[in-house]
């Protein structure tokens, strides 16, 4: 080849890139803009106002759903991160053996099985348990969220562990640290950035979930996304835009934090 190949200089590249960006960001920009609309419409501009943010923040249902979302996300992300950390240790701190790939697949199952399938399966499974035990609290949602958050927490933790020199843990064992002490004093401190990154990712994923939550939740257990879905069915007001905007801001903050934490070395 005479000239080196550069994708940027292919005909149509700029156009395609521009179309993609517009398709990706235009709807979001429009949504955010109309969150500040004075008029009760999501298509006709009636001047700037913060009233939808105000009304959303005083809406008891919104507050209730938000708190529930955070509660579920916090507990599920924590449990998922603990499980993911153990799984990551178990899959990286042994010599490779037949069946290890299968275990990776098992851990990452929620990434592969369609959510709707998991949702239906959980609905049937949990309804049986509900009949047997009579319990109908948040436990079901927390359990479901924990399960599908595990691979998201697992991936950054495993990546971090794979980059960590095994000889450090060996050195600790050589210097009389029991396996637990070696973990507490050497592995864990060096693993923290990975664990935090996994925790944040799991938190965002849980916060955002609709499909599985919709199937698993009992009456009066709306999370913010399912509440929004319910509202949209009845017609959209800029209040939904306002909630979405706040939600977007929160996600951006968490993902940015995730980015910095997971980039941190040493």
């Amino acid at each position: 080849m005479a000239k080196s190949f550069s994708i940027r200089h292919q005909p149509g590249f700029t156009t395609i890139a521009a179309v993609c960006f517009v398709a990706l960001y235009m709807p979001i920009i429009v949504l955010v803009v109309y969150a500040f609309n004075e008029a009760p419409s999501t298509s006709e501009w009636g001047g700037f106002s913060l009233k939808w943010f105000q009304s959303a923040s005083q809406n008891a249902q919104v507050i209730d759903a938000t708190l529930r979302s955070f509660q579920i996300a916090a507990i599920a992300a924590t449990l998922a991160t603990i499980a993911a950390t153990m799984a990551a240790l178990a899959t990286t701190r042994t010599p490779p053996y037949p069946g290890l790939t299968f275990k990776y697949a098992m851990i990452n199952q929620p990434l592969m099985v369609p959510e709707i399938v998991t949702g239906v399966a959980l609905l049937i499974f949990f309804s049986r348990i509900k009949i047997f035990t009579g319990y109908s609290g948040l436990g079901y949602l927390i359990a479901a969220h924990t399960a599908f958050c595990i691979p998201f927490a697992y991936l950054p933790i495993r990546a971090r562990l794979e980059n960590m020199d095994l000889s450090l843990e060996r050195a600790a064992a050589d210097l009389y640290a029991t396996p637990w002490q070696a973990f507490r004093r050497v592995t864990l401190p060096l693993l923290w950035p990975g664990i935090l990154a996994g925790l944040m990712l799991a938190f965002v994923i849980s916060l955002d979930d609709v499909v599985i939550t919709e199937f698993v939740k009992s009456g009066g257990q709306d999370t913010l996304p399912t509440y929004m879905l319910g509202q949209i069915r009845r017609g959209i007001t800029p209040e939904i835009n306002a909630i979405s905007t706040a939600f977007l801001l929160l996600s951006v903050v968490i993902v940015t934090l995730f980015f910095f934490v997971s980039r941190k070395r040493d």
């Binding site: 020199d165 060996r170 050589d174 210097l175 009389y176």
Partner: peptide, 20 residues
């Protein structure tokens, strides 16, 4: 015996100093 029960210490080729 596991390494932490042996009164034997190692100087690693890569040093393996604890970075934190």
């Amino acid at each position: 015996l596991p390494p932490f029960k042996r009164p034997v210490n190692t100087v690693f080729q890569s040093y393996a100093l604890f970075p934190h």
